[in-house]
């Protein structure tokens, strides 16, 4: 008689994993662009680091397998791979390494997609609906496995040069990554 009682939480525990794929197809309202206050430099006047403010929208996207896989699809649909290749970089910088010229948090990547960056990155504001920008940014973060393993994309159907995002080791953020290599002091 006692056994089923401890089985119940175990069964519920299994169900909790379903959150990672939660799909919200129909938001209550068309999403406006969120207001992310981010700094592009780790330097700041005074002893404290730069003040940043994020809305927290990114967490829903980074930890959700559905959003990341949609981002993976949009990444090729919108020709991100035209410059960044499969993450290894081409005429645009690599996305799967630990170097983030304009910051590696999802908010930084979202801002980079919205605003564009000097020397070639176009601005996609108003061209990609905001939720889709977040999906692409979530996928970009999964390339270096900054996202949870359970949410990262598994095997792809087409040919892929490296292991699936899910099977890559989790990356660490390079603290010096915000400085472009061209501006780095010779070692």
């Amino acid at each position: 008689m006692k056994k089923p009682i401890w089985l119940l939480p175990a069964a519920l525990l299994l169900l909790s994993a379903c959150e990672r794929e939660k799909r919200e197809f129909r938001p209550a309202q068309v999403s406006e662009e969120t207001d992310e206050k981010i700094a592009l430099s780790s330097l700041s006047a005074g002893p404290s680091p730069p003040s940043q403010q994020t809305t927290g929208k990114g967490k829903n996207f980074e930890e959700n397998a559905y959003h990341i896989s949609e981002g993976q699809k949009l990444y090729t649909w919108f020709n991100c791979n035209g410059c960044h290749s499969n993450g290894g970089g081409g005429s645009g910088p690599a996305l799967m390494d630990d170097r983030w010229i304009y910051g590696g948090s999802i908010e930084h990547i979202v801002q980079t997609i919205r605003e564009g960056r000097p020397n070639g990155m176009p601005s996609f504001r108003g061209k990609i609906p905001d939720d889709q920008v977040w999906q692409i940014a979530a996928y970009v973060r999964s390339m270096g496995r900054y996202t949870p393993k359970a949410a990262s994309p598994a095997r792809r159907d087409d040919m892929h040069p490296g292991p699936a995002e899910q099977r890559r080791p989790p990356a660490e953020m390079n603290p010096g990554g915000s400085i472009p290599s061209s501006a780095q002091m010779p070692q």
């Binding site: 197809f25 129909r26 999403s31 905001d130």
Partner: peptide, 17 residues
């Protein structure tokens, strides 16, 4: 105006107009 209400899960996104 409402692609996801008519065909939930379709790849047509909700576009702000």
């Amino acid at each position: 105006v409402d692609p996801q209400g008519i065909k939930p899960g379709v790849h047509m996104p909700l576009v702000q107009l």
